[in-house]
Design a protein around this nucleic acid. Structure first.
Lengths: 232, 232
DNA sequence: TGAATGGTTTGATTTGCATCAAGTCTTCTA
DNA sequence: TAGAAGACTTGATGCAAATCAAACCATTCA
């Protein structure tokens, strides 16, 4: 790994408290690599050889079973994926592919497990990350089990708006097919859900969305911070 | 906590590698308590004051939002619940109630976080437990997203049979209303799903289920170890 | 032990959403 | 730049599952 890349990596939450020598050792073994869009990085069922950290771009985690496929998550900077498999030295439960050109940090699992044992600050950062991943999946599960597809879309749009500065205008972060699959519906139904939200002030132009009546949208969406807040 | 209870607790995976003095200190602060059936232990949104470990009995984790409620998991011995909230000093994302009379170990969150910092073996056990919890929820999410309700029931029955010794006769571990909600369906639909499985050799007598034609049941269920195996 | 209560099953109907198909729009490529 | 390919929308239809209601069964209680 090139030394010019080190400061960027050092700023990642996962590594910023790690002691100097341990960080050096991890970075000796790691790779910072740029991958093109639509590249499958890992396959579910394979042994977990590396921990991946998204530095730039986006990575879709998806699962397959009996001819069916579903998007499980989309990881953005500076999230990790497959951390639990690395820590348990187990197989991946999901496959991963880039949705766009992406820069990823790959750290060998063995080195992650070693650093976990050696460096208390790193161990704490790892546990914080893993706990956040867990809580994120629990919230996704609540979203699916407790809301209709229209409600899920409405809350997702509100969240994207919030992430993008609360201007009422937002850019969908990935293509609609992936968004539909992530929300547990078909692309056709996503299209229909957008139409259902029209009377609530939602205007769609390709990947741009305008939320023109936040008040009524909130009444329909009924956000719940225990589902929608991704900071805690 | 009574000293006669210590050996039972010491055998829990979470504690068995913890050093003697650290274990003593944790147990000074902990409670081993028996609770009656149908008692709500924690409410979603509340701060996480204790880590809970199921020693005997069963605990249902459930979530509510906008007048709807769904069972998220049923924790059996010797699982923990709410570990991530404890580690992050965050709020509970789910409520919990006993499904039957249960003996639970309650350890104050502060003490868990302290021991995590002091005791490497304990930290490793905690991370192992958290990683397992995470992987369990990912598998549940895959179950919901990739399977029909009948398939989910079939695979769940196969799993219970396996857990109960592969005799082809099993006891449902909790009432059917809870099972239905856990599988993401209504009680009515659960009843219908059982009827759908009749031609595949599934016979139901109250809480007892007989799997009389495992071959054809497996063909319908199409188990996938990346969803159904709860050991890794 | 009979009545009350709660859990479950069954039937009828409705609803949310998937599937199939075709049309429209956008992007890519030779 | 025109045609091809892919993404998305729209329409029609079907289906899985929820909802509502009533009947039946099992358990609890006085």
């Amino acid at each position: 790994m090139r030394s010019t890349d080190l400061p960027q990596v050092r700023e990642l939450q996962l590594f910023e408290t790690t002691s100097g020598p341990n960080f050096e050792e991890l970075m000796q073994a790691a790779y910072l690599q740029t991958f093109p869009a639509q590249l499958t990085l890992i396959h579910e069922g394979d042994p977990a050889d590396f921990l991946y950290v998204v530095v730039e771009g986006k990575v879709e985690l998806f699962a397959s079973s009996n001819g069916r496929e579903a998007t499980m998550a989309v990881v953005q900077p500076f999230g990790t994926f497959i951390l639990a498999a690395v820590l348990k030295d187990a197989v991946y439960l999901m496959s991963a592919r880039t949705t766009e050109r992406s820069k990823l940090l790959l750290v060998p699992s063995e080195d992650i497990r070693k650093a976990f044992e050696k460096d208390d600050a790193f161990a704490r950062a790892i546990v914080g990350e893993l706990a956040s991943c867990y809580r994120g999946v629990v919230k996704d599960q609540k979203d699916i089990k407790l809301r209709t597809s229209v409600e899920r879309l409405a809350n997702r749009l509100i969240r994207y708006d919030k992430d993008q500065g609360k201007t009422g205008s937002l850019e969908l972060p990935y293509d609609k097919r992936t968004l539909a699959s992530l929300l547990g519906m078909t692309p056709e139904n996503l299209s229909r859900a957008f139409n259902t939200l029209k009377p609530y002030g939602v205007e769609v132009e390709g990947s741009k969305v305008h939320l023109n009546d936040m008040k009524s949208l909130l009444i329909l969406a009924k956000p719940n911070h225990l589902i929608d807040d991704r900071k805690t």
